[in-house]
Design a protein around this nucleic acid. Sequence first.
DNA 1: GCAAATTAATGATTTATTCAAG
DNA 2: CTTGAATAAATCATTAATTTGC
Lengths: 219, 219
Amino acid sequence: MELSMKVHQFARGFWEHEPSLSLGCKRFRPLAPKLANTESGSITASFDLKSFIRPESGPRNKLGCSDEKRETTQVETQPGGTRWNPTQEQIRILEMLYRGGMRTPNAQQIEQITVQLGKFGKIEGKNVFYWFQNHKARERQKQKRNSLGLSHCPRTPPATSITSIITLDTLGEVEREEDSPYKRKCRSWGFESMEEERRYCKEEGDKTLELFPLHPEGR
Amino acid sequence: MELSMKVHQFARGFWEHEPSLSLGCKRFRPLAPKLANTESGSITASFDLKSFIRPESGPRNKLGCSDEKRETTQVETQPGGTRWNPTQEQIRILEMLYRGGMRTPNAQQIEQITVQLGKFGKIEGKNVFYWFQNHKARERQKQKRNSLGLSHCPRTPPATSITSIITLDTLGEVEREEDSPYKRKCRSWGFESMEEERRYCKEEGDKTLELFPLHPEGR
DNA sequence: GCAAATTAATGATTTATTCAAG
DNA sequence: CTTGAATAAATCATTAATTTGC
């Protein structure tokens, strides 16, 4: 309690000339100033903390974090809808892909799906990603609930409909059919694509383009 | 068993003219061709499954998945290292940021950190993200292990070093200082940034640029 | 000393859980 | 109550330490 207070003060004094070590928009008091005097002084030289505030484009707006955040640092906060509201067609296609055996699409797959589904309404890559995550998990727990509720032999699927068989049986083997004998490598998240594309894109950053015309759908 | 086999055959026959519904590189037999005949035929019209193989750029290489993957669809598979191997400087900076209170940086923060850390060695955004995830989790479990091993009162930190206090106490309050009263919104994954930048980048996709000169470090 | 074998750390993914919008 | 979004926990996999037999 008292010691942390001391550290706090110390750090404050040390970093006084900086507005604060604000990275992005969340502000926090920088502590632990042991960077400069440990082993290699070259770090301090080339690691410019100031550029962390905002790499290019000088001081944009002093301290306007809470208001400014909604416009500059946020990307997906359009006026109106916050979270993705899938259309019927999008759901249908996603379910088709799921039934087709797709469980965790990688970044490229996600991108392609996003492009396709974008024809039916606004959608982002992360929506596709989350949909598969959630659908898989909830299908799993639904199935568990069923097998427990029926108190049935949990290893034999009841073979009710084709769909269930596709989901459980056939595509299970399809899933692992050619995922490389080595290991699963090219996985999702989309970071890799982003990393690559960053080199060509000159950090445009601030516009919030409306890519898809946002079909008036509503399910 | 038998039914799934039937479905399998049926699907195969139905999709015979397609090489396979290969999305990205993982191949799987497309099943459940119930898209066309359900409710709205307009989907089939504009949802072009062929473009899933590869949206632009025609047939690149027939069936050459297993070999081609290492060069064209993979991004991070440079000759040599597969997974990120952080340099001393990178670790030092990351730990500094962690001690400074950063726990789950959002996409923009990750990008900026990545740029900074790129001065000391090759790094991607996802590496930064994963580092924070792992570090946070393992710091947590280490702490839990300690509190259990010492069989001490788990509510009073022993106040051993400054660092521990910074990590646990002071920055805990800093963490929630200005993360918006609303909710955590601008979060990581990098999908949002990717989504945005995709509009400017024309799917260059195939080069494996060496952005940073990969300092000969070795720890 | 030095590789092969083993172990410890830790980067990368997946799964479970939780939060919150509608 | 359903489900999109986000985080935490658990797990997998790979690289560096290290031990060990020679």
